[in-house]
Design a protein around this nucleic acid. Structure first.
Lengths: 329, 329
DNA sequence: TTGAAAGCGCTACCAT
DNA sequence: ATGGTAGCGCTTTCAA
């Protein structure tokens, strides 16, 4: 049997309701008493009984996160960061690896206060769901019944191209996955196309390489395919962390020096970019900020029931490393 | 406010303690009443209040699982299967992606009844931990303060070699990661060496290729390295799912036909083996069985406090697909 | 500023 | 077979 506020009350010589207040930092308790009680609690190794707390205050202070099915380093990083972020708040996070329906079932059982999910899956059955929801993804429609955190992939691609353009690049290739209906992938691709148009780049069709997958190897093969045609581009934009790491290998295996022969910039602004064979300049909303925004918005949504579900487009950031160089016009 | 047993009691015209019994399928309630109550409960969409249940019955029926840091398809599959398995029991699982210390903190807060973790990390501080623990890993020492589920990697390698031997293979290579101190990787490597000795195979040093990593690409490079020397082996044992998928690519890129030119068998008995470019014959404890065993043992450990923490070595199974062929001596 | 007491939803025991 | 009730540990009035 673990120790309860009654035990503390006994030792401290106060009533247990006072202990409760003290532990919750209520202003209704004299500072002396409060300090004493807190000290005793700590000394006794008191841990509040979660179930009891939840029972009485209808909030569970629990957020559920549905683990995305796709295995990606970036997503794993994001989930971890979200977890870190939540740990700084009074909330706790529980994860479910089950398919969405089963996850919702579990979360309902735990009576979580809010649910975070990744991309679209939300759309379907969830409209009716009473639990505050938040989705990380692409805000296709400008209206949504629940808030969406959007990493603004299109903007990111624009910024990448602008950056390369200003370095003098005119022949820029895009290597990414556009085989699926994944809105994030499409948003990147479309963003590239649009920005290329804006900067009047002549995009040779073979500068657009569809990796048809998100794996390392897909980027690797795509890179080889890209350099099998001439003229070679002077820069390439990689669609994701994994893809770009494959591109590096593909280029290196063909004795192409990065960035001397070819510059490369990658989508996904995660710290791991620095640990690749060649640290890559990257574009995207920094994963920490993404996590912060997701958690913050989720909690706000929970605590202010009336707050409008907003679609929040975040600002991508360009993180320079040594993988791009300027080129004479 | 969601509905409670009192609401049900009112509708059913019985006391709420009767409802509680009925819902818990107590034999103390007449079948008629029970059926009626259950029907009403279902109709009203009743969900028991988790917190209240937990508060009164000291068990939480919660199992915590610490998500392994290493990103592997196989582990993700295992975690998912464990989740599926737990969903069949009265228990629920919560996942933590935090580092072990923080995870334990969280789990203590949730007052989980048991904790599952992957490999050794348990050893350290956990000795003192009062919560039943179970580890999936390698049972180096035969004694352990908590139960260990061991996939018996050594035996698996033995079985693989026996299989190949009986097909007539005498030149067998091993491609796997032996650069880290990961006991699972070492167990496989050592198992290979031992079995090779047993079958009196002359293991040319270049038949042992250290991938120095667990990624696809590591297997790919290793395969290329392997075939750069002659004589080529007639069969190769891949150390893991990812590694083997890299091996396939490496061999194919060099116009080597599987299994005509070279047979391949991979560790990791997961269904995904069938979806590779070339469906691979695989050896290992089937992931479903692993999950079943882990969950079953965990629950037993929780419910029978006195049960001895056993080290359970599981029996690997060889799943034949079309990647191995016999060879004339 | 502190204490007493109600009650969250449920299980389990005792009474009927 | 069913009902009444205590109490799990806590928060939150309300009273002192």
């Amino acid at each position: 049997m673990s120790i309860t506020i009654k035990d503390i009350a006994q030792i401290a010589g106060v009533s247990y309701s006072t202990v409760s207040k003290a532990l919750n930092n209520s202003p209704l308790v004299k500072k002396d008493t409060k300090d004493k009680i807190i000290a005793i609690a700590k000394e006794m190794g008191y841990e509040p009984n979660f179930a009891a707390q939840r029972l009485v205050s209808k909030r569970t202070k629990l957020v559920g996160l549905i683990w995305p099915t796709i295995e990606r380093v970036v997503l794993a990083t994001l989930v971890t960061k979200i977890s870190d972020e939540i740990r700084k708040t009074p909330y706790s996070m529980i994860l479910s690896v089950d398919p969405i329906e089963a996850s919702l079932e579990t979360f309902r059982k735990f009576q979580v206060d809010g649910i975070i999910l990744f991309e679209e899956e939300g759309d379907r059955m969830i409209e009716t769901h009473p639990i505050p929801l938040l989705s990380y993804g692409v805000s296709g429609k400008t209206f949504s019944p629940f808030p969406i955190i959007d990493a603004n992939h299109g903007q990111a691609m624009h910024d990448a191209i602008q950056y390369l353009y200003e370095l003098g690049h005119r022949k820029i290739a895009y290597i990414g996955d556009i085989s699926s209906k994944d809105p994030m992938q499409l948003a990147k691709y479309n963003g590239f196309i649009q920005a290329a148009k804006k900067y009047k780049l002549a995009v040779d069709p073979h500068y657009l390489v569809n990796t048809e997958g998100l794996d390392w190897y897909n980027g690797y093969s795509a890179a080889k395919k890209l350099i099998s045609h001439s003229p070679l581009p002077t820069a390439v934009v990689g669609g994701s962390y994994d893809i770009s790491s494959g591109i590096i290998r593909g280029l290196k295996e063909n004795q192409l020096d990065i960035p001397k022969d070819i510059s490369i910039i990658s989508y996904d602004n995660i710290p791991q970019m620095a640990n690749l064979e060649i640290p890559l300049t990257a574009i995207g909303v920094p994963v920490d900020q993404l996590a912060k925004e997701i958690v913050h918005t989720m909690i706000q949504q929970i605590e202010e029931q009336d707050s409008e579900p907003t679609v929040k487009k975040l600002q991508p950031l360009l993180h320079e490393r040594a993988s791009c160089t300027s080129v004479k016009a």
